[in-house]
């Protein structure tokens, strides 16, 4: 399996709204904790170690440059 970076979310604006709304009532720390939990939940869903490592490497950069 390869990391899929092509658009794969059916309703991007609806998804984004749902995501941001889910933290609307949270303080910043609570939102950060939620993000960490969300990453772990989604990582478990993906499962594949190679894909996860590739995703982690991409996320560690900013627009492809070191953050």
């Amino acid at each position: 399996m390869q990391l899929n970076l092509s658009p794969n979310i059916a309703d991007p604006d609806g998804f984004y709204e749902y995501l941001v709304d889910s933290q609307r009532e949270m303080g910043d720390e609570a939102a950060n904790r939620m993000n960490a939990r969300l990453i772990l939940i989604l990582a478990n869903h993906v499962g594949d170690a190679r894909v996860l490592r590739e995703a982690i490497r991409l996320a560690a950069t900013s627009g492809g440059r070191p953050d």
Partner: peptide, 28 residues
């Protein structure tokens, strides 16, 4: 964005949009 949390997601989308196609439809 109305909060730091929402600003973080917004900036992450913009950050990724330059390198990953999936983020482009999220740019609004």
């Amino acid at each position: 964005p109305k909060s730091a949390a929402s600003r973080r997601f917004r900036d992450a989308v913009l950050d990724l949009a330059g390198v990953a196609d999936f983020a482009k439809p999220l740019v609004n």
